[in-house]
Design a protein around this nucleic acid. Sequence first.
RNA 1: GAGGACGUAGGCAAAUCGGUGAAGCCGUCAGCCCUUCAAGUUGAAGAUUGCGGGUUCGAAUCCCGUCGUCCUCGCCA
Length: 497
Amino acid sequence: MTPRVRFAPSPTGYLHIGSARTALFNYLYAKHVGGKFLLRIEDTDIARSTDESTRSILEGLAWLGLNYDEEIVFQSNNADNHRAAAFGLLEEGKAYRDFTPKENRADINIKQNIADRARAAQGEKSMRDNPFRDLSKEESDAKAAAGEPFAIRLKIAETGKTSFEDAVYGLNERDYAEIEDLVLLRSDGHPLYNLAVVCDDIEMEITDVIRGQDHLTNTHKQILIYEALGIKSPRFAHLPLILAPGGKKLSKRIHGEIVSMTTYRDAGFLAAAFRNFLALLGWSAGEEKEIYTLDELTEKFSLEGIHRNPAIFNFDANNPKRWTDDKAIWMNAEYVRTMPLDELLPFVKAELKSAKLWRDEYEDDDKNWFEKTIDLIRERFFTLKDFSAQGRAYFSEDFDFDETAINKNLKKFPELKTWLPELAERFESVEDFTHDAIHDAVGKFTEEKGTKFGVIMNGARALLTGLAVGPSMLAVFETLGKEKSILRLKSQIVWNM
RNA sequence: GAGGACGUAGGCAAAUCGGUGAAGCCGUCAGCCCUUCAAGUUGAAGAUUGCGGGUUCGAAUCCCGUCGUCCUCGCCA
């Protein structure tokens, strides 16, 4: 039997970083064992599910390159099956009708209600005290026939326990006495989560359920449903949660866009890099290696390498440089500057296009220049965005000047106001405008002026690129070319700023 | 409140089911590269393995307790 796993998000928001990691692990597991990776959208909560969320999740998965096998399953399409299963259990006497009127609880207070109710009922509440649990079939049928609304609850045995061997967390056991007769079908006929999941996993022939640890204790309920249905449970593997700094819960509401996959795509992250980072959050191959291609991850991945302790996704909302986990930023920078240039180029092209800096000559007459330039400037870049922001001066005459660069490298040396245009004049007579010749010209100029090489070079960098940091100036002069170098050296605009 | 899980440096984490001075990566700091730098390179600091007991010749690894964090407990998913 070929292994089949599924990623089953509910479309109530964008693709969350934790969900993305769950999807990745499912994908890696499936590919590692030669199985299928399926996608199921759990859209049974009509009030909160949106098509936009579904689209956003699909986009996120596509960006990460996690392509699913087979058709997407929309859970809401299977509601009839779920209902049939519930009524089937009712028929067999494994479930019963609960005619208790539905209470209306506000969603926001639910967690508090649970705690309060549990506190109040402490010690005296039995999970088997529902008055309708043992109603005779005749009475139950009669009330239903009379039109009384009812929910269907699973009838859980008085004594015994469920147990399963989780691939990550090991043996899990739970007494029946701790589990309430769970509702399978709402009084309006709407199937509930646990039933829907089990039915769909059965129908999709899922062999391994890999999901977040938040589902761990609820797994017992699902096992109870499998047992009632007379079907063997799949293997379970629960993943440790991803937490916010301080070990706090990472939530969309509190932490906002930092948890959304689209944020990283839009911030100029390479999917391969982010995927690599995500893979290392809660899993390790147990070796001294950090950079993995998708193929390598697939080859090395195993459930045994998954940790039990939650991982903290580190970031500092008040620090622009550390707006997200710095290992993620480092990982992306590592990819930007070391991946094969051919693979990087399309991403750079897209970035320059969106910034309106792209010119078709970059793939034609200026192909060599373009590739050399990208290769030069990528050394100090972190994201794709840097190519259009920090790298703007290489592709346009219209670029900004960094204030600290100007103050530190230009205005601190007022002589540069006349020296740099003078240097430009010298450049006019440099025939072969390349590394060595430029070095000689600047060297000679520096000597004449009795100043340091660095003063000239740093001033030129500020003037030519608008920045205080960047590649070697000899390379910058060369890549910008004689004409532009001269033009910018002569420019006086920054001196008037 | 009840059940459960987890706890190795600021973060990610390794350590063949107890055995040499507790890997590696990110971040931090410093030297070098003296043309910058958030790049490269070299190096440093940072951990009595949450804390307290116990078992043992020997414990991050086993046991007990304690504290902390998180998860679950809904006619949500």
